[in-house]
Design a protein around this nucleic acid. Sequence first.
DNA 1: TCAAAAGTGTTATGAATACACCCATGT
DNA 2: ACATGGGTGTATTCATAACACTTTTGA
Lengths: 229, 229
Amino acid sequence: MDIGKYKSHDRLLVAVDCIIFGFDGDGLKALLIKRSLQPEKGKWSLMGGFVNQDESTDEAATRVLRQLTGIENIYMEQLYCFSDVNRDTAGRVISIAYFALINIADYNEQLQSEHEARWFPLDKIPTLVFDHKEMVATAKERLQSKVANHPIGFELLPEKFTLPQLQNLYEAIYESKLDKRNFTKKILSLSILNKLEEKEKASSKKGAFYYVFDKSKYRKLHREGVKFV
Amino acid sequence: MDIGKYKSHDRLLVAVDCIIFGFDGDGLKALLIKRSLQPEKGKWSLMGGFVNQDESTDEAATRVLRQLTGIENIYMEQLYCFSDVNRDTAGRVISIAYFALINIADYNEQLQSEHEARWFPLDKIPTLVFDHKEMVATAKERLQSKVANHPIGFELLPEKFTLPQLQNLYEAIYESKLDKRNFTKKILSLSILNKLEEKEKASSKKGAFYYVFDKSKYRKLHREGVKFV
DNA sequence: TCAAAAGTGTTATGAATACACCCATGT
DNA sequence: ACATGGGTGTATTCATAACACTTTTGA
């Protein structure tokens, strides 16, 4: 590769920062860690790290997330490039933000034990380093608009879930109440759910039927994007 | 600024590339120039340039566009960060793509004369350098989805425009025909247009009334985002 | 007078919304 | 027996979609 032609131009530090949204049946949460390097060491922060010469930003985001949390193979997409000259107080760093969705229960133990990561309800996010607060806000907006047309909300749930759980999730994302009957009607009309015999009995006496996705129809919707909730 | 802490990390060349969409009453077009530096010098390319140490990517995009085309003060927003390791054949460069909208007639002369820039209908884009083809495709998708909820389409029209012109624009963006009566009804129901006495007589014998935006209502919609066409 | 584009209303269909009662069961 | 959350149907409203004729006027 002949890099000579570009030699005279500035080179910048490029970082990735990941906003990980999680759901545990009770409000949306974001995953934060204590920043491990100066400046601002010890303050709450998104998962972040620098992009290496030999990896794309997607690869960097995947790697950083794995290194910091052990999380792999989750839904993640690029959010936005944050590039204010003074966004990082220690130097010029542009950051490509990513957002991801996971089911908290799937990962909770390893996060708590092996890594100093913690879930924060979206309305109780502590002060964050740099422009990470803005990143979280942007990610939340993106999640809301994305979830309206794509069935990505399911990434936040366990494989088996009940309709009330699904509705709770949408209510958490939209921060508003939905009508139970209308919600059920709408979701079932998409016919991407298969009802199981089994019931979830923990959260009610009557018990609620579990559902799972119909993977093939689910992927079809995922690709095409459909008017969702 | 203490940059010492980050010293050991890779620094990358960061570029911006601008997809400029234009409309001249007859189909959507994209603005391209002949690339002025090696490699691939002389091939068609988006407007691009490197991001300097002391500017944000927004600022870089604005500057690059001004330098290459003289265009200023137009609607522009960040599109996506393209970062494949081998996207630029001459070295590792990540690129933040921006897309912009303008009315071709407002800028045509200066573009043709002072700069080697040319408009290409979207279905006749020539072979482009690097991953610029993908950037154009991504920008087109974004334009389509954005214009459905935000009145940014108006950026592509002159200040005074007729309803048939506006409809042509939407048809060009969506690449499909719309019903004249339904379109008129919908647009007027938003009440962001003010009808003028004056008629545009060039393109028909009867003549079509000019309209202008109601700036204040327009901005309100712009902010809030409304179900549009 | 005729060709070409502008302008205009009604009906039909489907989606979103509002709304209230019975069911199953563990305590 | 009763308290708790789960499950179900209908009527209304509203937005979208389909559809055709008259008007104006320059050539």
